[in-house]
Every structure is written in structure tokens, then in C-alpha cells.
Design a protein around this nucleic acid. Structure first.
Length: 440
RNA sequence: CGGGGCAUAGCGCAGCCUGGUAGCGCAUCUGCUUUGGGAGCAGAGGGUCGCAGGUUCAAAUCCUGCUGCCCCGACCA
């Protein structure tokens, strides 16, 4: 992509409304624009990151055995009356009426709808287990949206819903998601720690929040330091191996970890002082087992081997990709801007033509751009007629992992400079070596 | 939902107290010079001062109402 043809509205100054670093950097880097309180448009750069995040979420959901679908944003109020949540949910739910005065709502979550779909088709225990998920926009009319994408009203959510014949099956479904989540966040360059959590309006009695530690986090969290170094299950983990998954979950729940609502100061105090981590955290995922809370009132039942009908055991599992974009920035930035982990970066590399208009420099940069693009590398080419300093500042701000500096100084020795954004490491090499480096 | 604050050019702000031709920096456009860490000079464009009433000869400025947004607290992917 040539920067001259891209849409990247960089802000040189910080908009005054942005308090936390991710909000500030997303606005400055031209990733998003606020359209109303807690409602944002994703601009091209922001969309690229959001899609990368969704891709990882999707891959790990699929790997764990969940099946993707897509439910609508608008739901009928009747569904929510069936579960009894229509009156309970309160003002957070955006209620709307269509032209026929029918009561509708913009979905804050999809338990009712997915249960309705399930019960319409599934009759037998033989069709279980089943885990259906989608990635769809949600709306929760927060009293006070803030911190940009971190606490928006409209947000993208991956929500998965598991259906099992009994509690044992549901526990395995829960464990699948637990392990999938560990892998998902790790791939995005985040250290997420599962913590015992409150179940809130979703209900149920087993729940973990996946929290990443960040000073700008919204909640106080407490955990054992050893969690920070626990190994993440590999891509070869067998999601059908019940006891293997249980072992992983057992390990990851063996030590103390709790959010402030579930915090037990006395228990926490029994840890040796150097193992006590008390920090602020950002919730990036939340999983629930809630049994028959919805299947019972909504009559989602299956026939068992004995022919008797029983309500299915369910769980739901959320990840907020739009919030994750912000969370990743909170975890990876410096004074100059964002430092994207490669897995979620909007582009893998950026070529900086440091002397646009100089024929030798233009030729070298163009050649490099064509070569990298030809090899399938997603590269942004800064071909603007701007000063080198401005280009460096932009490149640092938008956080592309690799910067390739092409200028007369290096070209005099037949070299370009390759700079890694994450650690600032830089190295002179020939253009051919630069291509090879980026192919790794 | 309680408390506080803001609304003037794309962004950041001054002007308001004490009413009288709407300003500054950055950005944008043109030209020349410049080109390895946000360049210099010269010129130009861009505003129904959030909206609606009121007071006044005259309102960005004073008064009333409304709307939007932000911050702190109680609530949440």
C-alpha cells in the first residue's frame, strides 16, 4: 500500500478528550474516530488491526471445536421476555421500536437468540456437544462510556455458546474455551491471567475473567506471581482429550487469582510477599458456565439415551476484539507511539523513502516495495514528499513492526537500514538482505 | 445517576470578567529554498463563535432554556 493512496489521518496534537494512552494513540494514529459518546468509526488502519485480532480469535475458536455463525444485531423483545431478562436488564439495553411499533432491541449479548436457534433444530443428545460462536457488534448503553474503545457503548464481541447433555460435558466445553483463550491472548502478545470472577447479569456459578495487567486497567486484581511465567498450551493441544484439558485448567487455577469483587484479603495474605501481585487489570475475556438458566425457561431440551427430555447445560464465552485493540496498545507502546506485535500489526513493514524525488532513492524504494509486495509481505510504502523527521515520527506513531529506511546516506554503500520498532534495534544491510529478513 | 467542567477554523487554544471590524500556534493550499529525527522564507484560503430565545443602538462576550462532549465517583465484553 502506498501511503500517498492510503487514508491515514495522523493527528499531530493530542485531542484533549483522550485520557489514557491507547485512546490517545488510536486517535493520533488515525485508527478511529469518535462519532458519539462511546461509539467509534474504525478508520482503515484501525480496521486492519481489528481484523487481525478477529482472525486470531477465529482461528483459536475453530481449533477448539467451536463453529462460527452470525446472528443479527437487532433482536425481538419477545425472546428476552421468555428468559425473563427483558425487565431485568435495565437501562443498559437499547430498546427500539420498528415501524409497526414492535418492540426490538440492539443486542447486548445473545444467549436468548442462540438458545432459540438451538431448540428449533436440536432434539437429541447425539447432536451434542455443540459450541456456536459469532463475532458481532454489541450495544450496551453504559452510563458513562470512557477510555475510548476500552469502555465504549458499541463494541465488537466474540461470543460463543456451548450446549452439552450434562454438567460433565459442559465442564469440558468450559475447559476448551479456557485453553483456547490462553492461546488467543498469548498470540496477540498479551499475558492474560484467568481469575475467579463475578458472574453478573449473565448468571451461573462458574466463571473466569481473563485479565491482562496494565496500569490503566479498570479494576484492582490480585494474583500469584508465578502465573506470569506459566507456559501456554501449544497449537498441538488435543481439545478432545478431556483429562489433558482438565489438567491444564487445574494448573491455571491452582494459584490465587481474583478480581476485587472476589478478592479474599486473608487468603491473599498467606502468599509470600514476593509472590503477591496486586495490580490493575483489563478484562479481555470472560467465560461462564450457567447450566440450565436459559435452557429451562426457554425449553431447550434434548432426548437422552433413555428417551427422556432434559434441558441442556450451557455456557457462554466472550472476548472483546475492539477492546483488545486498545488493550494491546496499553501493553505495547512508548513515548513515540504504538509498538504492534507482529501478529496484529496493520502492516508488517513500512518503507520510508527519505528523499522522495531523488531518482536513485526513488528507484531503490520502489524496487524494494515491489519486491516485498510480490512476495506477499504486507508493506506500507511512505512515498510522500515529506521530511525524514516527519516520516520517522509517523512510522513510530503507527507502530509498524519493521521500518526500512531508504535514503541517500545508506544507498551510497548500497545499503538500507532496517529498524525494529519493538526494541529500536537497527541494522544496515543490502536491500536483498532486508527482503530476506522480512521473509523470516 | 450524583458532582464538576468544556463547547470559538481540521487539531490545540486566547478573546468573555469590563458588549463595539473574531485572533494565535500547528495543520491545509501556492511559490522558492531545503531533505537521515516533526525545516525556512513569502503569500493564500478556511468561522452562521454548539442550538434557541431574551436584554441592548450593538452579543463570542450579559441573562434564560436546551443539546452535545469530557472528567471524578456508584455500575460493566
Amino acid at each position: 500500500m502506498r501511503l500517498s493512496r492510503f487514508f491515514l489521518p495522523i493527528l499531530r496534537e493530542t485531542p484533549k478528550e483522550a485520557e489514557i494512552v491507547s485512546h490517545r494513540l488510536m486517535l493520533r494514529a488515525g485508527m478511529m474516530r469518535q462519532e458519539a459518546a462511546g461509539i467509534y468509526a474504525f478508520l482503515p488502519l484501525g480496521l486492519r488491526v481489528l481484523e487481525k485480532v478477529c482472525d486470531i480469535v477465529r482461528e483459536e475458536q475453530n481449533r477448539s471445536g467451536a463453529i462460527e455463525m452470525l446472528m443479527p444485531t437487532i433482536q425481538s423483545a419477545d425472546l428476552w421476555r421468555e428468559s425473563g431478562r427483558y425487565d431485568v436488564y435495565g437501562k443498559e439495553m437499547l430498546r427500539i421500536k420498528d415501524r409497526h411499533e414492535r418492540e426490538m432491541l440492539f443486542g447486548p449479548t445473545n444467549e436468548e437468540m442462540v438458545t432459540e436457534i438451538f431448540r428449533a433444530y436440536v432434539r437429541s443428545y447425539k447432536d451434542l456437544p455443540l459450541n456456536l460462536y459469532h463475532i458481532q457488534w454489541k450495544f450496551r448503553d453504559e452510563v458513562r462510556p470512557r477510555f475510548g474503545l476500552m469502555r465504549g457503548r458499541e463494541f465488537l464481541m466474540k461470543d460463543a455458546y456451548s450446549f452439552d447433555v450434562d454438567q460433565a460435558g459442559a465442564t469440558h466445553a468450559y475447559n476448551r474455551m479456557f485453553v483456547a483463550y490462553l492461546r488467543t491472548f498469548e498470540r496477540m502478545g498479551l499475558k492474560a491471567i484467568p481469575m475467579i470472577a463475578d458472574t453478573g447479569p449473565i448468571g451461573g456459578n462458574l466463571s473466569h475473567e481473563f485479565i491482562i495487567l496494565a496500569s490503566t486497567g479498570e479494576s484492582e486484581v490480585y494474583c500469584h506471581r508465578d502465573y506470569l511465567d506459566f507456559p501456554i498450551p501449544g497449537a498441538d493441544v488435543n481439545f478432545d482429550d478431556v483429562s489433558a484439558l482438565q489438567a491444564i485448567v487445574n494448573k491455571w487455577t491452582s494459584l490465587y487469582a481474583a478480581t476485587s469483587e472476589k478478592h479474599n484479603a486473608a487468603t491473599f495474605a498467606t502468599l509470600s510477599t514476593e509472590k503477591q501481585v496486586s495490580a490493575r487489570g483489563i478484562e479481555v475475556g470472560h467465560i461462564f458456565y450457567f447450566g440450565t438458566k436459559y435452557s429451562e425457561p426457554m425449553k431447550a431440551v434434548v432426548a437422552g439415551p433413555d428417551g427422556g427430555e432434559k434441558p441442556v447445560h450451557m455456557g457462554s464465552y466472550g472476548i472483546g476484539p475492539s477492546r483488545l485493540v486498545a488493550a494491546i496498545i496499553e501493553a505495547h507502546h512508548d513515548d513515540a507511539g504504538i509498538k504492534w506485535p507482529e501478529a496484529v500489526a496493520p502492516f508488517k513493514a513500512i518503507i520510508l523513502n527519505l528523499k522522495q524525488g531523488d531518482s536513485a532513492t526513488d528507484r531503490a524504494a520502489e524496487t524494494l516495495y515491489r519486491e516485498l509486495t510480490g512476495k506477499g509481505i504486507d508493506v506500507l510504502y511512505d512515498d510522500l514528499d515529506a521530511r525524514p523527521g516527519a516520516k520517522f515520527a509517523t512510522a513510530d506513531l503507527i507502530g509498524i513492526p519493521w521500518q526500512v529506511l531508504v535514503g541517500p546516506k545508506g544507498l551510497a554503500e548500497g545499503k538500507v537500514e532496517v529498524k525494529r520498532r519493538m526494541d529500536g534495534g537497527r541494522e544496515l544491510m543490502t536491500p536483498a538482505d532486508a527482503v530476506a529478513r522480512l521473509m523470516q
